[in-house]
Structure formats: C-alpha cells, structure tokens
Design a protein around this nucleic acid. Structure first.
Lengths: 209, 209
DNA sequence: CTGGATCCCTCACGATACTG
DNA sequence: CAGTATCGTGAGGGATCCAG
C-alpha cells in the first residue's frame, strides 16, 4: 500500500490504520468479544471494527476463537505475534502521554486505556523491592495495581484488600505528570483517598509521565 | 479524534495517520527537504505531505528550518521530542519485518528504509567488542554500516575503505531472515561480494530479522 | 442479546496540474 | 524547489437492520 519494501511499511499496513493500535491495546489487557471492543471504543463504526479484526486476523496478529461454554460466542485474542506489540504499544502510549493536556469534555477513559496507562508509566526503580497495592477509581472505571517485590500487575476491576484506594477524575494525570503534588491534589479535593493515605506519595512516584 | 483520553490515542492522532511514521523514519536518518521526502516516499501526494508536516510541526515533533546558506530553502528536522520516537520506529520496523515476504514488483527500497532496517535488526551480542565495516548496495541504493567496538553506525552513501562491499537485491532479506545461508546466497548469485568475503557470515549474523 | 451486514453521507486520501 | 489548487474515488462515520 505504501509501495515500499520495508518492515515499518508492513507494520503500518497491519496496525497503522485508524483504530488499529487501540484495538490491540484493548486486546493486550484481556480477550474481548466484538461487543466488548465496541463498548471500549464507542466511536468506532461496527463495519470498521469488523474490517480491522479481519485484517488483524489475516496478518496473524489476532485469533478468532469460538466459545461454546456458555453458548456460541466469538472471542478475539492476540496471538503470540500480536503480543509482541506490547512493548511498542506501551512505549507509544508513554510517548503520547506527553501530549495529554486537559481532557476534552467528550473524551472518555476506559478500563483498558487506564490499565495500559499505568503499565506504561511504571517506574520499577522508584519502588525497588517493596510491595504495595492500589485500587484506583476514575469516573466509573475501577482497576487495581499490585506491586509485589517490584513486579507490577495492573488489571481491571476491584481489589479487596488494597492498601490504598484512590478516587479521582482525569486530574490524576496532573499528579502523574508532576504538575500537581500529591498533597495539593488531595487538598483541592481532586483526589480522595481511603486506606494508608501516606502511600499516595509513593503512587505518584511510581507511575510517572 | 478517537474520543479517548489516552496517550496512545494522542500518539495515533499525531503519528498514526497514513504516512506519518514513514515521514518520521526518513527524518530519523537525516534532515530532509520537502523534495527529499517526496522522492523518498514517491506515492505520497504532495498535499498530504504538506498536511502531515504541518500536523507534526504543530505537535512539536518536527521543526521547520529556513536555510539561507545556498539560498532560501526549507529543511524539516526532528525535534528532541520527535527523536524520542526512534526506539519505537525501530521496534515497529523490526516487528513488521516479520511480515516481509518477497518484494512486490512495484515496491521500492530507499536509502532511508534500508538504513533503518539495518539499525533495527542489529544484534550487538553477535559482534561483541569486534569491529567491521560494510558497504551495501541494493539496487541503486548505497549505504554503509560501521561497527566500532560493538557500536553501530549506519548511514546512507558510500564508504571508501569498507572491509566488505555487498551487492544484492531484495534477496538480502532472505539472508537476514535465515531463509538463505550466506553461502547459498553467494553461490546462487543473489549476492556479490568484494573485499574480505569471509566477513559476510558475520554480516548475516549481525543483522537478523 | 451478540456479532455483525447494509445503507448513505461525508471527508480524507490519491492523482495530477499548476503557481510563487 | 516548495508547496497550493482542483477534482475524483474510496475509506471512514453514523444509524439502522438482520441472523443465530
């Protein structure tokens, strides 16, 4: 399509089209059904989603699995080749995060986007070999991050027993970008804490744009 | 444009549009004038190139410089922020290289694409602390790679005094992918060597898809 | 209800010609 | 050389509809 015999051109063909990498992002968090993807990417037309999934499948990035367990449904899953995109998606998300200012009013945050945001901004050197656990609420989105001896796991959903529960709006980005100190964020009411509130400083140091 | 408050979505806005990353690729090799970019990307319409350059400039990825030295001309150059894309472009090119089969007849190889191909497939562990220098000819494209104590430099153009000069077609990919042994490639005439021909084995081990 | 297919409209892209 | 102008086409956006 670009007329170039070049790896980057081939990659652009497969995952460089509109919506392509966002679909991969969501699949990196967990397997998804068609409707899940549509819910996570509300602005994508269904015909485009269908087309992208077909392209990705033909390129060996995505696998289409038929589930018979509850009833016949389709699940989309990344192949091993597709999973190789993880570091690239994380790096590109980290790069693009520097372009994030305030959120537009019509912009949403999804569980998948936030999970990848935390995974991409994680700084192992900030935590050393310590451990911690956070439950994060941003709007309706709930996810949790567990750091076990320096190893990070971020997943969607609640985590009972999190050491610290953080409730915030998109302003959480300002904290992660260092534009707002943790103390200021709490004071202004932009962030609410529950649990070991002193851990919030560590959170802000651990996830950094 | 995607309705998501997400770093990856912002990155897709800026460099994810058609031709975007290929323009960045070419600028990673060297500063380029409008005509240089057009020559390196023959299939891009000039109005699209104009638009992309404007988008990239507004995002702070590209800087537009006015040269007065020979005469008034414009040169496009990556900003520091734009240079941060280097590892991502290399990784994505490496990933996409796995999708490269035979070249289509209408596909071209440019100096920029080949330079980045070598940079992205370089395996430092294959050379250790040794040194070597290669001049590579693929079609009309000439470039050279110099490895000095394990440190790689790949640039367009000739290099007088290269230890080994390699002349090949797109089949050089098959060697780098391990589908063709260096010996087979030479025997079949797909690759011609000049200089320290025994170095070709090392070349094939050093640049690996 | 899920997993799409279809329709229609718009706009971005592609090709080419032209200008300061 | 560095774009701008014009115009045709195809892909994307949005809503609705349909089959299992």
């Amino acid at each position: 399509m670009y007329g170039q015999y070049c790896g980057l051109a081939r990659a652009s063909d497969v995952v460089g089209e509109r919506w392509g990498l966002l679909i991969v992002r969501d699949l990196l968090v967990r397997d998804q059904r068609f409707g899940d993807l549509k819910r996570g990417l509300p602005r994508i037309p269904t015909n485009v989603l269908t087309k992208r999934l077909k392209t990705l499948e033909e390129a060996g990035v995505v696998e289409r699995k038929l589930l018979t367990s509850p009833r016949n449904t389709v699940v989309y899953s990344l192949s091993e080749f597709g999973r190789d995109l993880e570091d690239i998606v994380l790096a590109l998300g980290r790069w693009g995060a520097k372009l994030l200012g305030e959120a537009d009013l019509d912009e949403i945050v999804t569980p998948e986007s936030l999970v990848m945001a935390l995974r991409s901004t994680y700084r192992p050197e900030a935590v050393g070999q310590t451990s911690a656990s956070y439950e994060l609420h941003v709007g309706d989105v709930v996810l949790h991050a567990i750091i076990d001896q320096g190893k990070l796991s971020v997943e969607p959903g609640e985590y009972r027993g999190a050491a610290l529960t953080i409730t915030a709006g998109p302003a959480i980005r300002a904290v992660m970008a260092g534009e707002l100190t943790p103390a200021e964020a709490v004071e202004s009411g932009a962030v609410a804490l529950e649990g070991e509130v002193t851990l919030f400083d560590q959170f802000a140091a651990t996830f950094r744009i």
